[in-house]
Design a protein around this nucleic acid. Structure first.
Length: 936
RNA sequence: GCCGGGAUGGCGGAAUAGGUAGACGCGCAGGACUUAAAAUCCUGUGAGCAGUAAUGUUCGUGCGGGUUCGAUUCCCGCUCCCGGUACCA
């Protein structure tokens, strides 16, 4: 074959790999392991666009490279196949989501295989497969059967807690639990009826039932994702949405807050990602203080990180959802409070936090007492305080906190200065810790450092509070009022939740007549007929959230067929953890925290060996769409009018409406007018076009890739026209893996030409009369050829380690340009180059590898060439010579020339002398092997 | 709002222990081959000014300051864009 025929070559090799199971991976303990994982996709109905494979190409390059370096590489792919879109489609069409999901996954696999990824498809998993979610349910059960012992700082079986109760009651127990756990002695425990004992343990288990705030849409009869709520109404239909408490399964992730925080120091992730997780966990050190409510027995607890400002408290603010609101509201204030609470229910948490400009709130009519000075403090409600944070109450210090300051101004409350270091507090709050305290009772005259211990001692001696570490992170809601998710393996008996017997797993999704909630607002599973545990007991009707299956799936790839365990212990001990994890940064605080949480839990219970599941992690950037526009004259729209479109360069002279035009009929921003008329008769029939230089030039904007913007580019189209190798190289060539960047098919010709030029090093260009001959010879390479090769070997190996693939592609181009110029057709050089290029362009390199006389299909497990620095040694260096930091000339010196000799010669140089204009330089900076700078 | 990230030619980008800004590619312009086109190959290409030209020279890495012999790179203050913000996955 003397012409580069990408289609034929690629189809051949893909068939070869499939037939020979080239990428089947064994759990082979004799070779060092390397686990490279892609965040698995949700198989959407739209199929893949060119943005999706970006991360997969990168991880496939590393995978193939590591194989060449002698590693046993696990590189699997599967589907996170539970999700809202399939359910939404099911609601609209009645089609079971399993069917849609199956079709979409099949399409994804086809598209992925088309790009030549070296996935081991025999290990594919899907979270919606009962054989998979059996183990998701099993892990849920293990969580339910566990509690968190703070003493040992790990999760333990619930039996160890019960044993403690039996011998010592709650005495000395350090557990993460609900707030309202009762205290008892061993005798008291042992005397309790079984049901009550069980009820008590429910407060300690790592998954538990509690009331949580959700977006309730009464009109749709369902709970909405924040995503589905826009401006306080449902995105679908525009119905009102309110914040409502609902009984939900929860995950006690907060038990792991500190370990999740500490673990970040041990993983190789980007600083920004770690920082996002740290902020999410939000550890803050401070104190909890109780304020007695005037004329009542209840107290209001607040958490503060600035206990030192307690003498500046001039009011108290509670979240509108605070449990004491009803009791605190006086008769006179009731109408105002009720109105405010109702209004707050209509606002989403995000709206409430984002809106820092409007001050709103209402006085309850009640007061509490500042325990440090006995002053009466009025109690307000305001929606900037969120019920789920801390205690849902804030002690307001207007002189030190800007939000409190604005609130105080608005309601005309006192602003008490507390530090003599505070400045301009009549204009704004000053949160300084500088200076000495004033108006502050027992800490007057002290500094911040001196005051803190005094305050804490006072707190503890008077029993009004304690030092406390608070986390912003809350327990995770684990229930979804949906159909298309894992059923929760729980049934109810006399109102209490119990686990299913293990042999009854998996609890499969029952058929339902509709995928909607019931008329009474119960989740879709309530529609299932005769769906009772052992024929008697109500099942839990909510399903698990999207993140359940993805919180442990990487272990299933290690042993995907196992029906005895979630994975064989030997397989887990061999593969252990993920060495490189590639995926989108949008998972920074969701999936990546939950996965770490479940991993730590599984480790505590002895199922997995590593504390952290993902050693190294990179976020690939999003590939954006490049939308094209046509501009229609506004005056040309209307009954009986002929539409007129004006070219981009001339649109300024007219009043026009920009309209998206399909990027697939635009080349280099020039519109294919004929196809446009043909494909869009709805608005381009008989249309006239005002051209520039005889062409219709389209406008351009960078936007997210989406169907509605007509800017979606399908990888299949690219593979058909240019081949998968070109697609792979081009996606890498676009820019750094981690950056967001626009897709522009225009540039792809460059890498396609590169592959053809590379091919020309092996085969002569064919003419009409004869096919191109095989050019490769066994001649000995010249130093220049070896230099070109070894520069590339070094660069590419370094780049792959740093995941800097765009620069590797340029390095290949430079190398091929150099070898072409040198007319190098030598096997000794070309064969090594084939191996180096193989991870990037696996098809063309397999073809050439075989043509060079190697056994077909063995390239994937060949050996990566070893870089030899001897070929790159230079004996001269070109020094840029600067005058006052500006380059004026360059001079060549041999590598061993000493600085003083360089300086001498530079000062004698005519260009330098010209710039010196006879003056003596103040200083000459000679940086060896780098640069010379003459300062005058 | 809060948290995180980014900004370099017409376009994608390259260059950071601070050391010749614009590698590589696209596009564009000119040329070769061709009856012609495509493909391919060669040359040029940040902007301005001077010069027939070789060349010389000034400006130039989002904006405003600073540190330094020297700043795309480090520091301070802004502007705009993107991601996350707990039920999209």
């Amino acid at each position: 074959m003397s012409e580069y025929n990408h289609k034929k070559i690629e189809e051949n090799w893909r068939a070869f790999w499939e037939k020979n199971h080239t990428f089947r991976t064994e759990n082979d303990a004799s070779k060092p392991k390397y686990y490279i994982l892609d965040m698995f996709p949700y198989p959407s109905g739209a199929g893949l666009h060119v943005g999706h494979p970006l991360g997969y190409i990168a991880s496939d390059i590393v995978t193939r490279y590591k194989r060449l370096k002698g590693f046993n590489v696990l590189h699997p792919m599967g589907f996170d196949s539970f999700g809202l879109p399939a359910e939404q489609y099911a609601i609209q069409t009645g089609q079971h989501p399993a069917i849609t999901t199956e079709e979409n996954a099949t399409r994804y696999i086809e598209q992925l295989k088309n790009i030549g990824f070296s996935f081991d498809w025999s290990r594919e998993v899907r979270t919606s497969d009962p054989k998979f979610y059996k183990w998701t349910q099993w892990i849920f059960m293990e969580l339910f059967r566990s509690w968190y012992n703070k003493e040992t700082d790990q999760a333990e079986p619930i039996e160890t807690l019960i044993a403690k109760f039996e011998t010592a009651g709650t005495y000395g127990i350090q557990a993460v639990s609900d707030d309202d756990v009762p205290h008892f002695t061993a005798e008291e425990w042992n005397a309790k009826p079984e049901r009550e004992q069980y009820e008590i343990t429910l407060k300690y288990r790592l998954t538990y039932v509690a009331d949580a705030v959700v977006n309730w849409c009464a009109a749709l009869g369902t709970v909405l994702a924040n995503d589905e709520v826009k401006d306080g109404v449902s995105e679908r239909g525009g119905y009102p949405v309110e914040q409502k408490l609902m009984r939900q399964w929860m995950m006690r992730i907060t038990a792991y807050a500190d370990r999740l925080l500490r673990g970040l120091d041990t993983v190789d992730w980007s600083d920004s990602l770690k920082e996002q997780q740290r902020n999410w966990i939000g550890k803050s050190t401070g104190a909890e203080v109780s304020f007695q409510i005037e004329h009542r027995v209840e107290q209001i607890k607040v958490f503060t990180t600035r206990l030192d400002t307690i003498f500046g408290v001039s009011f108290m603010v509670l979240a509108p959802e605070h449990e004491l609101v009803a009791e605190l509201t006086t008769l006179a204030q009731k109408p105002a409070v009720d109105a405010y609470v109702t209004a707050a229910k209509m606002r989403s948490e995000r709206d409430r936090m984002a809106d820092a400009k409007t001050v709103s709130g209402v006085f309850t009519g009640s007061y509490c007492i500042n325990p440090f000075n006995g002053e009466r403090v009025p109690i307000y409600l305001a929606d900037y305080v969120l019920a789920g944070y801390g205690t849902g109450a804030v002690m307001a210090v207007p002189s030190g906190d800007q939000r409190d300051w604005a609130f105080a101004k608005h309601f005309d409350l006192p602003i008490i200065p507390i530090l003599d270091g505070q400045k301009d507090i009549d204009k704004q709050a000053d949160n300084t810790k500088e200076g000495r305290y004033i108006n502050s009772g027992i800490i007057d005259g002290l500094t911040y450092q001196e005051a803190l211990p005094v305050l804490v001692k006072f707190l503890e001696e008077h029993g009004i509070g304690k030092a406390k570490i608070n986390f912003r992170m809350r327990d995770a809601v684990f229930s979804r009022q949906r159909y298309w998710g894992e059923p929760v393996p729980v049934y109810f008996k006399d109102g209490l939740p119990y686990l299913l017997d293990e042999q009854d797993l998996p609890l499969e999704l029952p058929p339902v007549d509709k995928y909607l909630p019931t008329e009474t607002g119960e989740p879709p599973l309530a529609r299932a007929e005769d769906w009772k545990y052992k024929g008697d007991f109500e099942y839990e009707l909510s399903t698990m959230p999207g993140w359940a299956g993805s919180s442990w799936y990487w272990y299933r790839y290690m042993d995907p067929q196992n029906d005895q365990e979630f994975a064989d212990q030997k397989a887990i001990d061999y593969w252990r953890d993920v060495d490189l994890y590639v995926g989108g940064s949008e998972h920074a605080t969701g999936h990546l925290l939950y996965s770490r949480f479940w991993n730590k839990f599984l480790k505590d219970r002895g199922y997995v060996p590593e504390e952290e599941p993902f050693k190294k992690l990179v976020n690939q950037g999003m590939i954006l769409g490049r939308s094209n526009f046509v501009y229609r004259l506004k005056e040309s729209v209307g009954e009986g009018k002929i539409p007129v479109f004006v070219s981009n360069g001339l649109k300024g002279q007219y009043d026009v409406t920009p309209l998206h035009v399909d990027v697939n009929i635009v080349e280099n921003d020039v519109l294919d007018v004929e196809t446009f008329i043909k494909t869009r008769p709805d608005f381009a029939e008989n249309a006239e076009f005002i051209l520039e230089d005889g062409k219709y030039i389209c406008g351009v904007e960078i936007e997210k890739m989406s169907k509605s913007k007509f800017n979606v580019v399908n990888p299949d189209t690219i593979v058909e026209r240019y081949g998968a190798d070109t697609l792979r190289l081009y996606e890498m060539f676009l820019g750094p893996l981690t950056d967001a960047k626009p897709w522009n098919t225009n540039g792809i010709d460059g890498v396609y030409r590169f592959l053809k030029k590379f091919w020309r090093l092996f085969y002569e260009e064919p003419t009409e009369t004869r096919p191109g001959r095989w050019l490769v010879t066994d001649e000995k390479p010249t130093p220049a050829e070896l230099k070109a090769l070894h520069k590339t070997i070094r660069k590419v190996a370094e780049d792959i380690e740093h995941l800097s693939f765009n620069t590797s592609v340029s390095a290949f181009m430079v190398c091929v340009n150099e070898l072409s110029a040198l007319k190098c057709n030598k096997k000794a050089v070309l064969q090594e180059l084939v191996v180096v290029l193989a991870p990037f362009a696996p098809h063309i390199t397999e073809e050439l590898w075989a043509a060079l006389g190697n056994e077909a299909g063995t390239l994937s497990y060949a050996e990566f060439p070893v870089f030899n620095p001897a070929y790159l040694v230079e004996d001269t260096i070109e020094y840029p010579v600067q005058i006052n930091g500006k380059v004026r000339t360059t001079l060549v010196f041999s590598v061993d020339t000493v600085a003083s000799d360089i300086e001498k010669e530079v000062l004698a140089n005519e260009v330098v002398l010209k710039w010196l204009e006879g003056k003596t330089p103040k200083k000459v900076v000679v940086v060896p092997k780098r640069i010379v700078n003459v300062v005058m």
